[in-house]
Amino acid sequence: MGCKPSSTPMDDSLRLHQDFSGLLADHLSYSRLVGRLIYLTNTGLDIVFATQQLSQFMVAPTQTHFQAALRVICYLKGCPVKGLFF
């Protein structure tokens, strides 16, 4: 909650790829976070691409993948009023 809000869900210059160096010690926290982001894609259509990119690395996430997932969280913090309005 102490992060600065981000204006975009992903950094445009960041290219995520499978890398087996620097694997996360606790990959379950990454998979739980990405699972929650997948659930939020029902109402937040602006995070669909970022969540899809992050979900490709559920088997062996690295610290870079976890930092990219945290950036999506910072983006969601900056736009709490966005959503579907019926």
Rank of each mutant, 00 (worst) to 15 (best):
Q63H: 01
L23V: 12
G22K: 05
G35K: 11
A25Y: 10
M1L: 10
I38W: 05
S55M: 09
D26T: 07
C79T: 15
Y39T: 04
L37Y: 07
H27C: 14
A68E: 10
L28I: 02
D26G: 01
M1N: 10
Q52D: 03
F57R: 09
C74G: 04
P9S: 13
F66K: 03
M10R: 02
S29Q: 15
S21K: 13
I73D: 01
Q18M: 11
Y75R: 05
L84T: 00
M58T: 00
I73N: 08
C3S: 11
A50T: 08
L24N: 03
Q53Y: 00
H17S: 15
F49D: 04
V59R: 06
F66Q: 08
V59A: 14
G35F: 14
M10Y: 03
A25V: 13
L37R: 02
A50M: 02
V72E: 00
I47L: 03
Y30N: 09
V81R: 13
G35M: 12
L16G: 10
R15V: 15
L37T: 00
P5M: 09
H65C: 01
L23G: 11
S29K: 14
F20N: 15
A69E: 01
M58Q: 08
T41M: 03
L24H: 01
V48R: 05
Y30A: 04
F49R: 02
Q53M: 12
V34W: 03
Q67E: 15
F86G: 11
S31N: 07
H27R: 15
G2F: 12
L33N: 04
H17L: 13
G78M: 03
S29D: 11
A60Y: 13
T41F: 05
V48W: 01
M58Y: 07
D19E: 15
I73Y: 00
L23W: 09
L84P: 01
A50C: 07
G35T: 13
L54Y: 00
L40F: 09
C74F: 08
A68P: 09
Y30H: 02
D26Q: 11
D46R: 10
G35H: 12
F85W: 12
D12Q: 15
R15M: 13
K77Y: 03
P80F: 07
F85H: 09
F85R: 09
V81I: 12
H27E: 14
L14S: 11
D12Y: 14
P5V: 01
L24C: 09
A50L: 00
L54T: 00
L76E: 05
C74M: 07
L54E: 01
M10H: 03
G83S: 02
D12G: 11
M58I: 04
T64C: 10
N42W: 09
M10P: 01
C3R: 06
P5I: 06
Y39V: 09
L84V: 04
A69K: 01
A25W: 00
I38S: 07
Q53K: 12
A69N: 02
